[in-house]
Nucleic acid binder design. Structure first.
Length: 513
RNA sequence: GGCCCGUUGGUCUAGUGGCUAUGACACGGGACUUUCUAUCCUGGGACAGGAGUUCGAUCCUCCUACGGGCUGCCA
């Protein structure tokens, strides 16, 4: 195996990192760790018009939250930086000169307006305008113009771009690690812009220059890049770098849950689930999106879920930590077809992490949340609470809402069910039971349970006639953890006070029918 | 429109030239239980369609359909 694996995640800071991008980052990271390689973060900010302030920080914060830590990157550093493309302008310039000198690229002076008009015209004829071997000689470039004319334009400082000279009638064949052999005719390609009029490179050029210079061994990216890969191959060839060209690996896309197309921001709004890792407010429009983190997802659970849309280890283990994923990951088990986003499954993974989570850890996570609500409780209490509630919630942030009654007084009773159970003829029995509970010294779940059971037997009462009343008295609701467990955690004093108050409330409630 | 990529239950998927086609989520039923969960058991449900190749195709080939991507001085 290649012992010098160097892979990179190369997002563009044009907005919040999409969940598909997160998955690409994850696979890239897994691949790097699996092969003791290097994971590089490179910021592809060559489009000054689309730059969004805060987006780069968002990307870093998201990776940080997910614990997908780059080995090299902006701020982190590394020997082959800088890792922000906007800081590499001079480098691209140098290689652009080189590719021109080699005769594999040329200057083009056509304005965006010229080209727009040509596209429109072609469209009217139901055709496609393409800047390629068939049209370039009738356009304004250093191939069609005389050297003098070109020099003239240069002297006038006319804006120009640099385009790749694609030769017609050739076939480009490359191996993709997930798609195997892919073929393309150069007749389908166009003379891609390499350097823009503003002096910045396009994605294509910056990408191959950087991957080459950063000694990237494998290009792992989404399938939307598959169709520009032949251009990249041509570029490596044109630069004379083909022998060290990286391997390509195009990941299947994540599709929307229903209907057509890939998962988008709109789907999140439409179905009410996150499609971004973190909350984000667009600095321009003020538009807000919610993140998986804020929704209450555990980073590990999100990663676990994401890992399995588009990849599976081939065994039947689905719940696994990052180290297991690293151990099992392999690109030849990445699937070719796009996967639909299944939010139910994402939630299931989270519930698994909550339920299998360490109680101390969960309690630690709950502590600040509890403090926020003004709940003052001991660590032991919190741990006991977690124990009682953890199979009943999907998200950590549901604990305190679902079980609020452990921290404050009952807000409302489930009247409907109360009416069914709070019978006149049983009223006296509840006072007896109260007295019985009052006599217990060691108020633990086991003792309370034994006592209550004994009482029920003596009085010839069923569980169903008594427990629901206690439950509603203590929590207001009919759902929740074991009544005896609740009693122990609340403690004798609070339990009895609540019951006393509840009995009185129940009597009152039922009088005003 | 053109080119490229894809297609196993509702969803994510395993799988091999010959099996009752795997597991998970979701859904139905049951068990447990004081309730809600969780858990356990259990049920229904898929090889897109058509031609080939072959003794035999989910698996190989071709065509069709459908889905996706690209088609910018965006990434």
């Amino acid at each position: 195996m290649n012992s010098t694996v160097r892979v990179r995640f190369a997002p563009s800071p044009t907005g919040p990192l999409h969940i598909g991008g997160v998955r690409t980052a994850l696979y890239t990271f897994l691949y790097a760790r699996k092969h003791q390689g290097t994971f590089i973060l490179r910021i592809e900010d060559t489009d000054q018009g689309r730059y969004v302030p805060g987006a780069e920080d968002y990307i870093k914060e998201a990776l940080d939250w997910l614990n997908i830590q780059p080995d090299e990157g902006p701020e982190i550093g590394g020997d082959l930086g800088p890792y922000r493309q906007s800081e590499r302008k001079a480098i691209y310039k140098k290689y652009a000169d080189e590719i021109i000198a080699k005769g594999n690229a040329y200057f083009a002076f056509d304005t965006p307006e010229d080209l727009g008009a040509l596209r429109k015209e072609a469209e009217a004829n139901k055709e496609n305008f393409k800047y390629d071997a068939s049209t370039r000689m009738s356009l304004k470039n250093s191939l069609s113009l005389s050297p003098d004319e070109v020099q003239n334009l240069m002297d006038q400082e006319a804006p120009y771009v640099i385009r790749l000279k694609v030769n017609p009638n050739e076939e480009v064949v490359f191996q993709d690690l997930v798609r195997e052999e892919v073929r393309w005719s150069t007749n389908e390609l166009d003379d891609k812009v390499l350097m823009k009029a503003d002096g910045m490179p396009t994605y294509h050029f910056a990408n191959i220059v950087d991957d080459h210079l950063m000694k990237v061994s494998h290009v792992i990216r989404g399938e939307e890049w598959l169709s520009s890969t032949p251009v990249h191959v041509l570029l490596y060839r044109a630069m004379g770098w083909e022998d060290t060209m990286p391997e390509f690996c195009h990941l299947p896309l994540i599709l929307k849950p229903v209907g057509k197309g890939k998962l988008s921001k709109r789907d999140g709004a439409k179905f009410g689930f996150p499609v971004f890792p973190l909350d984000w407010v667009d600095p321009k429009t003020g538009e807000e999106v919610t993140g998986f983190r804020e929704k209450g997802f555990e980073a590990e659970a999100l990663l676990n879920f994401l890992a399995l849309v588009g990849w599976n280890p081939g065994d039947n283990e689905e719940v696994m930590d990052i180290n297991t994923m690293i151990e099992k990951f392999s690109i030849d088990r990445v699937s070719k077809s796009g996967g639909r986003f299944d939010y139910d499954k994402a939630k299931w993974f989270n519930a698994q992490y909550v339920q299998q989570g360490d109680e101390e850890d969960l309690a630690t996570k709950l502590k600040p949340l509890a403090a926020q609500k003004g709940y003052e409780v001991s660590d032991d209490f919190l741990k006991g609470f977690v124990q009682l509630m953890k199979t009943r919630v999907t998200f950590v942030n549901e604990f305190l809402d679902e079980g609020y009654y452990f921290f404050e007084e009952v807000k409302a009773y489930d009247e409907k069910n109360l009416r069914k159970k709070w019978k006149e003829d049983k009223r006296a029995k509840f006072d007896l039971l109260y007295q019985r509970l009052d006599r217990i010294n060691n108020f633990t779940e086991e003792v309370v349970e034994t006592e209550v059971k004994a009482f029920l037997q003596e009085e010839e009462l069923g569980f169903g006639a008594v427990l629901p009343i206690l439950r509603i008295g203590l929590s207001g609701t009919l759902k929740g953890p074991s009544v005896f467990g609740m009693m122990e955690l609340l403690g004798k004093e609070k339990t009895l006070n609540r019951l006393k108050k509840a009995y009185a409330d129940f009597d009152k409630l039922l009088q005003n029918v």
